[in-house]
Write a protein that binds this DNA or RNA. Structure first.
Lengths: 165, 165
DNA sequence: CCAAAGTGTTTCGAATTCGAGATACTCGAC
DNA sequence: GTCGAGTATCTCGAATTCGAAACACTTTGG
């Protein structure tokens, strides 16, 4: 009677699977929490970043909410139309557009955020605090490493692609 | 001179942020790896599940690829049109539709999978094997717990919603 | 056997996201 | 200064995803 009838399980692949599943499950909590207030995930993301970091260029916001630039424009447009966010030009660099919360926007996110934070706490509560911190450390390393390798690949692809085709 | 000028950082929120970032970074590797072969993430997901598990009902496939049922129909349709997957009815339960790879589908995914697995290994290589296993354990607990709490909430919402409105 | 509740799959329309490519601007090398 | 590469933002069309609801079938409990 063998212990492992098929394969000794590929650890990296297993990590990727459980990472995706964990993200999905927690994201559903997050989504549900946010949906209560009539916002989408990325809309909430924009408001939250501006709430905690203050006025920021679109590109900085984009990096934090993990969607492409064209999607960011779309989301910001909606928030501007709803009177929650304002666009403003800078003198220092005329390419960038700064985003700020309006008073209404600040009031909205300020009222929502605590409940949302609570929802996230409950979502990850299967791990005790100590293990949450440990998981966070490991995930940070994992994420930074993956992002780093990604940058390398992009550069290689950009150099190879046009040159070799 | 204080150690922590602002806040002592909320561990659950930080965990959620690094989880999302790690997922995003690894997912980009995965996406890029899969795109080389002219497939989308979910298309690949369907092929891979069928490759490793054999013939399966649509609903089983759906649970594993983490998209809603309507999206599953959409993706399976595309794969059927491309001649990679076949739909088949069962006598035992006439509601379910079984999915299988065609010969072409099996050949395709069989040729692709090793390279993809390699891409994933490289994506998560920032963590040594020991820590990968540790992260996988923590994420498994986290994901299962979050999914569990989610089920509870849905039931509560279904009971509350219609009754109280 | 029947009704009601539950499950598996699909349809449809709307919302979101992406990718490629414009546009406008900055910066560094020459 | 000016050319070219790089950056910030936006536009547009296409692909993907979702949610709600329809439909077909099965199961459960009288």
């Amino acid at each position: 009677m063998r212990r492992s009838p098929v394969a000794p399980v590929d650890v990296p692949l297993r990590l990727w699977v459980v990472l995706a599943r964990a993200f999905d499950a927690v994201e559903r909590h997050s989504r549900a929490s946010i949906a209560r207030f009539g916002l989408g995930t990325t809309e909430f993301g924009v408001l939250e970043v501006l709430y905690h970091k203050g006025e920021l260029p679109v590109c900085d916001v984009q990096r934090r909410i993990l969607v492409e630039s064209s999607s960011t424009t779309y989301v910001v447009d909606k928030l501007v139309k709803r009177g929650l966010v304002r666009r403003r030009r800078t003198a220092s660099d005329r390419r960038v557009i700064l985003l700020t919360l309006t008073t209404a926007g600040r009031r909205l996110i300020g009222g929502i955020f605590p409940a949302h934070a609570q929802a996230i706490r409950s979502a990850v509560a299967a791990l005790p605090a100590r293990q949450q911190a440990q998981a966070a450390r490991l995930l940070r390393t994992l994420g930074l490493g993956a992002a780093e390798r990604l940058k390398g690949k992009e550069i290689r692809a950009a150099a190879d692609g046009p040159a070799l085709s």
